[in-house]
Design a protein around this nucleic acid. Structure first.
Length: 119
DNA sequence: ATTATGACTCCCA
DNA sequence: GTGGGAGCCATAA
């Protein structure tokens, strides 16, 4: 996961949690979107930020407090990234309970359920 | 000290 | 639309 920790991991995590907590129920956001919304720290190349920061977000989510709606964070393909240890479909069940629909191949239509930041 | 292991995204075949 | 490789490091055992 994390390639190079963010300049200020604690602050980065806090911003990530704030953004994730702002995602309304029934909506989802990608790791990359969150990374962009949180803002690219100075000193990090723009091109590499996309892939790297997404993993920072993933790492932050791995340590996320209970109140963070982690289930609303999925990858850029609209698919659920498998989490180590947890139930394989736990995230999907939680999202479906909120009204998020999955395609036959298990993908979420980001055009319909994606959250573009703000509300 | 060495090894294994990552909640990802982009780009190209 | 799907699949594989690159990017390139911190942390735990």
């Amino acid at each position: 996961m994390a390639f190079t920790s963010p300049p200020d991991p604690a602050a980065f995590d806090a911003r990530v949690y704030r953004v994730v907590c702002a995602i309304p129920p029934g909506r989802v956001m990608t790791y990359g979107q969150i990374a962009e919304l949180v803002g690219r720290p100075a000193g990090v190349a723009a091109r590499t930020y996309a892939g790297v920061a997404a993993r920072w977000v993933g790492a932050a989510m791995a340590r996320a407090p209970d109140f963070v709606p982690w289930q609303r964070v999925i990858n850029s393909q609209g698919r659920i990234s498998p989490r180590p240890g947890r139930g394989p479909d736990e995230q999907r069940r939680l999202l479906e309970a909120e009204g998020v629909e999955f395609s036959a191949r298990g993908r979420v239509d980001l055009e319909r359920f994606g959250h573009h930041g703000r509300q």
